[in-house]
Every structure is written in C-alpha cells, then in structure tokens.
Design a protein around this nucleic acid. Structure first.
Length: 204
DNA sequence: AGTCCGATCGCCT
DNA sequence: GGCGATCGGACTA
C-alpha cells in the first residue's frame, strides 16, 4: 500500500522508525529502507538545514509533508529526505540506506563495478541507484508522481529497530548523545558503517 | 565579492 | 584510516 499524506504529516521522530522496511520506488528500481535519520524542525535541531530558518534551498522543507527534499552535497552528491510534520515546521527524514529488492538490472547498470551490498548503502548511493537528483526536489510522493513509498509486505519487528547518533552531524550535541535520531534495522548488511560525528580536522 | 565548509563517496595506503 | 574531488549555500563585509 502506498504511504499517504497522513503517514508523513506526523513528527519526523515518529515517521522515521516506521519508514524502516518500507520501499521507495523510482526509475525502475525499488529499495527497501534499512537506515534513516530524523531531523526536527526550525530552531529545534542544530543538525537540520532548516535550523536557521527559511532559505531558498530549504523552502521545500517548510512546505507540505509528503514531498521530497533533495539537496546537493560535497559538490557531487544528491541526498533525499521525506518532508514530515505540519506545514511550516520543516521536519524531515533523511533516507540513509537500503537494499535493492527490484530492478536489479537497472541498478547494476547505474552502479557499474560496485558490489550489490553497496548499491544503496549511504544516502548519496541510494539516490544514485534510484536515479534521484535535483529534478526531484519538491516532488509529491503521495500522488501519481514518479516517486512512491510502499508499506512493507512483512512489517519490521519493532524489537530489531535500533537507535543511535546521526552520522556526520556536528555542532551542539554533535557527539550524538543529545540527538539520537538515527534509526536502523539490526543485523542488516546495508546499514552504513558508523562514523562518529567528530569535528572535522582542518586541512588548509 | 569573497570565504568557509558541508546530513559523502571512492580510491589510495 | 586518510584524503581529494568539486560546487553551491550561507554568512560576512
């Protein structure tokens, strides 16, 4: 069953663990989500792009739930979030990792030379495998659009859901203790390796 | 106009 | 485990 607007129009911290095991479909490939991160809204979460308020880039986050917020990272990658909560709150869930469950041929072509385990292991790898990029910033995932989320045929055992610090988020509480907003399915091979959110050493 | 640096990845050692 | 790639957003002046 396709996830609808009411699913996303709840706090990101509620939506995030429920997205585990769900699939995202685009470009002929289906990925089952194994790892996500919640980002609370404006002013509530120093790790969020929306923390300092509305900007042209974060406009989509402040809009209606059930749309994709896609941002450009490190000059070469695209990462995708599902906008959550009430309009104006700018809550979102980052899609961090998953496993390809359909469309293996297309995925293999897009990720030539990469082991299958790594096809969607990491937020930018996930978008690459699904062929999601800047063109999908703001798209509605609840309608008849090209991007859809589906509830799992077999629900994830709540006992296998783990919580911990987010990856690569620094600043206040950057060690993760203040914002344990990362959720993953225990024992999944596609969950990205843990890297503590340490302050990056300056290189020049 | 200029600077800083990032919700990362892939390749190298 | 380290580091370079590569560029746009946000902030400073």
């Amino acid at each position: 069953m396709t996830l609808d607007r009411s699913f996303f129009a709840r706090p990101a911290l509620v939506v995030a663990p429920e997205l585990l095991g769900c699939t995202i479909v685009h470009g002929g490939v289906t990925v089952r989500l194994t790892e996500v991160e919640a980002y609370a809204g404006e002013g509530a979460d120093p790790g969020s792009h929306a923390f300092r308020g509305r900007t042209p880039r974060t406009e989509v986050m402040f809009g209606e739930a059930g749309h994709l917020y896609v941002y450009f990272s490190y000059g070469m990658h695209w990462c995708a979030n599902a906008v959550c909560g009430d309009e104006g709150e700018a809550q979102a869930v980052l899609l961090r990792a998953g496993e390809v469950v359909a469309g293996h041929e297309l995925a293999a072509a897009r990720r030539a030379g990469v082991p299958e385990r790594d096809w969607a292991r990491g937020p930018a790898r996930l978008t690459s495998t699904l062929a999601i990029d800047r063109a999908h910033d703001g798209v509605d995932v609840c309608g008849d659009g090209p991007v859809r989320f589906e509830a799992p045929a077999v629900p994830v055992d709540p006992g296998s859901v783990r919580t911990g610090p987010r990856v690569g988020v620094s600043g206040p509480g950057g060690d993760g203790t203040a914002y344990p907003y990362r959720f993953w399915i225990e024992g999944e091979r596609t969950v990205s390796a843990y890297r503590p959110g340490v302050i990056r050493r300056r290189t020049r």
